[in-house]
Amino acid sequence: MNVRVGHLYPDYLNIYADRGNIAVLQARARARGHELSVQAIGMHDPVPAGEIDLFYIGGGQDREQALVAHDLVTKQDALRDAVEDDAAFLAVCGGYQLLGHSYRDVAGQELLGIGILPLHTIAGPRRMIGDVLLDCAWAGETLAGFENHAGRTLLGDGAEPLGRVVDGFGNDGESGFEGCRYRKVFGTYLHGPLLPRNPWFADRVLSDALTHAGGDPELTPLVDELERQAHEISAGRARARGGRY
């Protein structure tokens, strides 16, 4: 099965090794006999309607994020249609913020997001930096990663978080929630990158993409021994910071 991936603004949003996430999806698809064809969707590029099974958007520095935000708004309708059509979507850090309604930076400048996720973000004076461990009860799994963000993301009414923070800051350092999920969209601050050390989540995203592509979402298990070790160490780093929530 060919899975079509649309990587949004790879030239601008790539600060936290986003290509690691793509490499993991690529390799895990191939190990199951599928192919991932990744196309870049950059500034001024149209979003091909109905032709993308999985969108990916990464994080950037403030400067790049502002450059991208103005362009992303022009893609709003096409992306929203794709999401309602159950295309898979993974958004990390800056990209996650831009999927919300708005992002207000430290200077009070407001960037409009595309409102796919019911949330908004306000930058605070202190960055939230460190290892994070999440409990994703909806999947019966945990996620381990690293966060580094000044934005405090506030979920709107009825929004589903990606997970509950076991250790770390999460969306806003207070609510105990991290990330957001809606239909087949996952937004999160966790990088590291996220997917190599959380293979169950990589397979979940891949499986959603396969469903959209009209394929069999069932994935045969892989030997994930290195992944398990990496997850364990990363989770241990988060725990060592001493259970904030």
């Binding site: 790539n14 936290y16 090794a17 290509r19 930096i129 580094n148 990088h191 990158p193 190599p196």
Partner: peptide, 9 residues
């Protein structure tokens, strides 16, 4: 650096 994500870049 506590964040090891750079190795992927």
């Amino acid at each position: 650096g506590r964040d090891v994500s750079w190795i992927w870049d």
